[in-house]
Simulated scan of single mutants.
Amino acid sequence: MAVTSHDVARLAGVSQPTVSRALRDDPRVSEATKHRVREAVNQLGYVPIEAGRALSSGRTRRIGLLVTDLDNQFYSHIIAPTHRELERLGYQLLLHTESADSETIADRLIANGLDGVILATTTAESVAPLRLHDRGVPFVYFNRTAAAVDADSTVVSPVNGLTAAVTRAVDLGHRRIGAILGPSNTSTAQGREVALRTALAEHGLALEPDYVRRGPFDTESGALSTASLLALPHPPTVIFCGNDVVAYGALNAARGAGVPVPDGISIIGFDDLPPASWPILELTTIAYDLVGMASAAAGLITRRIEQPDAPISHIQFETSFVERGTLAAPAAR
């Protein structure tokens, strides 16, 4: 005969509702009681039935994380910390990828019976925030935001990191500044471009149109854009990349063109993903607490679910400049 929560309650000496609350880590239950319940669960081999929980609470305790492309290394580094924090808070993470048909993604998210959604793919044209808002499904912006709907968010402030990076590049003697910017319909690309242009202007410099490329935040964009920049009669001496993944492509293109980094071209990324510090890359980049940002998003979405009337919270993570081996003074020409 299957062990039930009533069996756990009898062994732990508490009521059945207390067992349910203890297993949800409800703060109204004392730590001593939670310990007794967990001991009873382990002794009896009790396995909570999630469907029963959902029926009794009206919640599935499932959170969706919407990403664009599982091949993009940026997303692979946020899945684990988001999962860990949601699990700690008593929720499950369900991963969703956004197809080219953005009109259906919101419907698919809603159809999955999610308690809430973390949006990591938002663009200016995204319909998901509007659809989720209209259907009353809680959501949080991660990294990117949209002006159409105000909601909880965890974002990066690029100003400090890019200001320091530009100052260092200028001090080294760089004057021909290249940039591979992300998609202009994303808040991240817009914010980083403004911060970069502002920092250059403080030194009397500007991004010349011939030295600017735009494209997706992926390695192919970095490679193609860098090859194009290096083919110019007077190529830039340093390239600021929209993110580290773009910078990986830039490094590959420079290597393929026989241009040494940093002696022939300097490359600067953004995000400070774990591989950026590997000895084989030693990528100079802009850093922030990516793990902390993912954990904060998990905290925001669970708070929004449990406290739907709480004030909207915008958490901003500051950036810093990390100098490694891909930045040096420009070669004399």
Rank of each mutant, 00 (worst) to 15 (best):
G161L: 06
L162H: 01
A165K: 09
A165W: 07
V166D: 00
T167D: 15
R168W: 02
R168C: 08
A169P: 11
V170L: 09
V170A: 03
D171N: 12
D171Y: 01
L172C: 10
G173Q: 01
H174M: 07
H174N: 10
R175V: 10
R176L: 02
I177C: 08
I177V: 14
G178Y: 05
A179V: 05
A179R: 02
G182K: 12
P183R: 13
P183E: 11
N185G: 09
T186H: 12
T186Q: 15
S187R: 01
T188C: 06
A189N: 07
A189D: 08
Q190L: 14
G191E: 14
R192T: 05
R192M: 13
R192I: 05
E193H: 15
E193W: 07
V194N: 06
V194P: 01
R197E: 13
R197Q: 13
A199K: 08
L200Q: 04
A201Q: 14
A201P: 01
E202C: 00
H203D: 06
H203Q: 10
L205C: 11
L205W: 01
L205H: 06
A206D: 13
L207V: 09
L207T: 10
D210S: 11
Y211M: 11
V212Y: 06
V212G: 08
R214M: 08
P216S: 15
F217P: 11
F217H: 10
D218E: 14
T219C: 11
G222S: 04
G222P: 12
A223Y: 15
A223F: 14
L224M: 08
A227L: 15
S228R: 10
S228P: 00
L230W: 00
A231L: 03
A231N: 12
H234Y: 00
H234V: 09
H234F: 00
T237F: 00
T237I: 07
T237A: 02
T237C: 07
I239W: 00
F240C: 02
F240N: 13
F240Q: 04
G249L: 04
G249I: 13
A250P: 08
L251E: 06
L251D: 09
L251H: 06
A253V: 10
A254M: 04
A254C: 14
A257V: 00
G258I: 08
V261Y: 02
V261Q: 11
V261G: 07
P262F: 13
P262T: 11
D263T: 15
D263V: 04
I265T: 03
S266V: 08
S266D: 10
I267T: 10
G269Q: 10
G269N: 09
G269L: 12
G269I: 07
F270I: 06
F270R: 04
D272C: 13
L273W: 04
P274Y: 12
P274M: 09
P275Q: 03
A276E: 04
S277Q: 13
S277G: 14
T284G: 10
T284M: 05
T285Y: 03
T285W: 01
T285D: 06
I286G: 04
I286C: 10
A287P: 07
L290D: 02
L290E: 05
G292V: 08
M293R: 09
A294N: 09
A296I: 02
A297P: 07
A297T: 14
G299D: 06
L300H: 02
I301Y: 01
I301N: 04
T302W: 02
T302R: 03
R303V: 00
R304S: 12
